[in-house]
């Protein structure tokens, strides 16, 4: 019951963009809920059309490029940000039969590669804006994302070692007995934190740092180019959630309900967790962020690899 590829791509793209747009409203409502206030509740039932209103507004805003900016790169940067996130979804298996390239033999590496590319979107935006706040934001982003990419890669190695494959579908299938969150709990925590940092979501949104950098790397952006960054961020949240589900939470597998729904539910819950992080936690200082990465998460992920390797060797046949 595999659908034709164009349908899969189209549906994935539409769902993803719709979800990201929906999330812009959903996050604000959820934040309101957790902070004892309403959030956007005026447009449409429960305010759900707020996302549409915002979309219309942002589309109709003047598409302005600052005269001092590097025009070509300035335009390119948000596209890179958006594209890398969307491409990453290509290898995420929603169900066993519904994915664009879920059985790509270097699936996980592809995701990591796309994440690495995503840094360019932010760094180039900061650089091309040619303003000091943007540049500072871009520099922070470069340091933060490159650092956290290291542990992200290392943290998933445990999963790969257990599965023996980089193919996402194989990883999910390997969890049919036990979700990897149990044996790979350390890797899962590190991956989650690295994921938050990679998507520069609160509490690790130092590249944006509204109160000290204006808006960081996208200070000079407005209109739909800003909207691209905005949507890419939410798509990124969905991506990290989906990856967590795939790598550690057994992907689409679950009893009774159809696989796609399981996948959706698990991903949705994780998205809510991401929002909860934002609602509850303050932003660390920059040195604290780096110290956390290099002094705690790196050793932890190395420990995870070593432990996984040791256990695998002990149980290895022969």
């Amino acid at each position: 019951m595999t659908a034709p590829m164009p349908v899969i791509i189209g549906v994935t793209l539409a769902v993803l963009l719709g979800l990201a747009t929906f999330l812009t409203w959903f996050e604000r409502r959820l934040l309101g809920l957790w902070q004892d206030r309403y959030g956007p509740n005026r447009v449409g039932p429960g305010g759900i059309l707020q996302a549409v209103a915002d979309g219309i507004k942002i589309l109709f805003k003047q598409d302005w490029i600052p005269p001092f900016a590097d025009r070509g790169v300035f335009v390119l940067a948000p596209a890179i940000g958006m594209m890398t996130v969307l491409l990453s979804f290509g290898v995420v298996p929603v169900t066993a039969f519904w994915s664009i390239a879920g059985n790509l033999n270097v699936g996980l590496l592809f995701v990591l590669a796309m994440m690495g590319m995503g840094v360019y979107g932010v760094v180039l935006a900061g650089w091309a804006s040619n303003s000091k706040y943007a540049l500072l934001g871009g520099m922070r982003a470069a340091a933060q994302m490159i650092s956290y990419e290291v542990f992200m890669g290392l943290s998933v190695l445990g999963v790969v070692m257990q599965t023996g494959s980089f193919t996402m579908r194989d990883i999910v299938l390997a969890q049919s007995g036990l979700w990897f969150i149990v044996p790979q709990v350390l890797g899962c925590v590190v991956f989650t934190l690295a994921g938050v940092a990679e998507t520069h979501r609160l509490p690790f949104d130092l590249p944006e740092g509204e109160n000290e950098l204006g808006a960081g790397f996208h200070t000079e952006y407005s209109g739909m180019k800003f909207g691209m960054f905005f949507l890419a961020e939410y798509a990124g949240v969905v991506l990290i959630s989906a990856l967590l589900v795939t790598l550690y939470l057994g992907g689409w597998q679950g009893p009774l309900l159809p696989p796609a729904l399981w996948f959706g539910l698990k991903t949705g819950a994780l998205v809510c967790l991401f929002i909860l992080l934002r609602a509850a936690l303050p932003r660390p200082r920059y040195d604290q962020l780096m110290a956390l990465g290099w002094k705690i998460l790196l050793p932890l992920s190395l420990l995870n690899i070593a432990a996984t390797g040791a256990i695998l060797l002990l149980h290895a046949p022969g």
């Binding site: 809920l33 902070q35 004892d36 909860l276 509850a280």
Partner: peptide, 8 residues
């Protein structure tokens, strides 16, 4: 903190 916020 996360839990308390969640309870809100």
């Amino acid at each position: 903190t996360l839990w308390l916020t969640f309870l809100h």
